[in-house]
Design a protein around this nucleic acid. Structure first.
Lengths: 115, 115
DNA sequence: CAGAATCCCCACGGATACTG
DNA sequence: CAGTATCCGTGGGGATTCTG
């Protein structure tokens, strides 16, 4: 296969991989929620306040994260009920993604301000 | 300042950094376009085909990337006109972000299929 | 070839109020 | 406390056509 096709193949694979990642942690909230939960388990309302996200969206995002085995939901049987959300071990595999984005964001802001 | 406030501060900073990054390379296309341009400079239509993105969106995305000094636009004075897009040196600072997302996407897909 | 113009749609996200 | 229900607006993204 010639050079051109090879490049097209590479592009296709890269596209797919990035899309896959974006499908799981893309959007406005998921990475932020995860980065908060890295500090430790949180309850629903607590998380809602920390992230400044409305309950409706939060609920939806958490379900999706749970579906992808990134977040664990644990009901604590008190009254009124408490629910604790925490990161799964699998979520640790996202560390380098989150860290690099965190670092880049910080550095980028510095660069902007320096100008 | 007590423990709680400290955590809130940390969350706020993390939120800001991630948002900053997302503002620049978030959305459906930017990282994909960059990952393609890592293979070398490309012309508009070429890029449009490689990424399977419509010209309207591509144009918009490229402008935004250019504004953030991640992409360079170079007119080649032929006829009909050719325009070449390439990554700036500053875009290299995104390498770890892109690579980690690329890697994670590939690994994640493997994990899913293995199940 | 590189893009602008036009038109369109729906899904993402938000505000508020309500319930077990 | 942890969500669900309802309603709503916006803009991100898409398809197609046109032009310098």
């Amino acid at each position: 296969m010639d050079k051109k096709e090879e490049i097209m193949e590479d592009c296709k694979k890269a596209r797919m991989a990035i899309r896959d990642t974006l499908d799981v942690v893309g959007g406005k909230w998921k990475l932020i929620l995860i980065s908060i939960m890295r500090e430790g388990p949180v309850r629903f309302n607590e998380l809602s306040k920390l992230a400044e996200i409305s309950p409706r969206i939060l609920s939806k995002e958490l379900k999706e994260l749970e579906m992808n085995d990134l977040v664990e939901r644990k009901v604590i049987d008190t009254r009124p009920i408490n629910v604790e959300y925490s990161l799964t071990p699998y979520c640790k595999t996202l560390d380098s993604v989150i860290n690099s984005m965190l670092d880049w964001g910080i550095q980028h802001r510095k660069n902007i301000l320096a100008k």
